[in-house]
């Protein structure tokens, strides 16, 4: 069942509690009362179609964004994606870090094993952070400049310059690398850790890793299914404009 505007937000959460984080990223916090999706979006000055597309893309993996999303405001989408990044780096990762610390201070574990897991996790965090930074430093400013140009006609020269170094298609290819490391970490814990006396703390870590993986997967799904088509549409418009314009 897809989420629609007439549903009460409380019902949405009962239907799928994994959406809590997503809804938070729009600035909508708990305490929904009897308010509907539509009412809460209006209260937070959020375009309803945008909210519904994002939430449904998360909610149903087979959901395919409607064509209207090609007209979504790029700045709005990027603000959402940045919120998601902040959630990973400021909340989710530190939470897993706490569990890892608990593991490393547990005397019943072999020192070498603890160190391997901790170091592997830190390496993963480093790569995830690098990946996010690259998106925020290179991809997003480019997208915003493109939107700005199409709206105002300003900044063409800088755009052409950055286009020579980067195109949105490259960006699609960058996603898989970081995923592999998370995948490995899960498998190492599930299959290859020497059997511990008590695996409760590892269960917690694993649970977190699965959740993080799901969330990241959805995040890149949104980037690939919504952001990339929007940017491709804008790039086309940009080329059409510059080709027909005074530069020809």
């Amino acid at each position: 069942m897809l989420i629609n505007e007439e549903m009460k937000m409380a019902e949405v959460i009962h239907l799928n509690h994994h959406l809590l984080h997503v809804i938070n990223r729009f600035g909508i916090q708990l305490g929904y009362g009897e308010k509907t999706v539509k009412q809460l979006c209006a209260e937070h000055e959020l375009p309803l179609p945008f909210f519904l597309e994002i939430v449904n893309t998360f909610h149903d993996p087979s959901y395919f964004p409607v064509d209207a999303m090609l007209r979504f405001d790029a700045a709005l989408l990027i603000r959402y994606l940045q919120q998601t990044h902040a959630y990973y780096l400021e909340f989710r990762i530190p939470e897993i870090e706490q569990y890892i610390t608990r593991l490393t201070t547990d005397e019943s574990w072999d020192e070498a094993v603890k160190r391997l897991i901790r170091d592997f996790f830190h390496q993963y965090v480093f790569e995830l952070t690098q990946h996010i930074k690259r998106e925020e430093d290179r991809v997003y400013p480019y997208v915003l400049a493109l939107a700005h140009y199409l709206e105002t006609g300003q900044g063409e020269k800088e755009l052409v310059e950055s286009l020579m170094h980067y195109s949105i298609q490259e960006y699609e290819n960058e996603h898989d690398d970081v995923e592999s490391k998370l995948f490995d970490l899960k498998n190492i814990i599930i299959k290859y850790i020497p059997r511990p006396k008590d695996s409760r703390i590892l269960n917690l870590i694993l649970h977190e890793l699965f959740e993080l993986e799901d969330d990241l997967h959805n995040h890149s799904h949104i980037e690939n299914m919504i952001l990339v088509p929007i940017v491709e549409r804008m790039e086309k418009e940009f080329f059409a404009l510059t080709r027909n314009g005074r530069h020809d």
Partner: peptide
Amino acid sequence: KLGIKTVSGLTVYAILNKIIESGEVNVF
């Protein structure tokens, strides 16, 4: 067979399974 894709993941596996000694390699 192992379900491990990255080199550092394989290194961890190799250490855990004593295929190499952790002293042999500067892991990370």
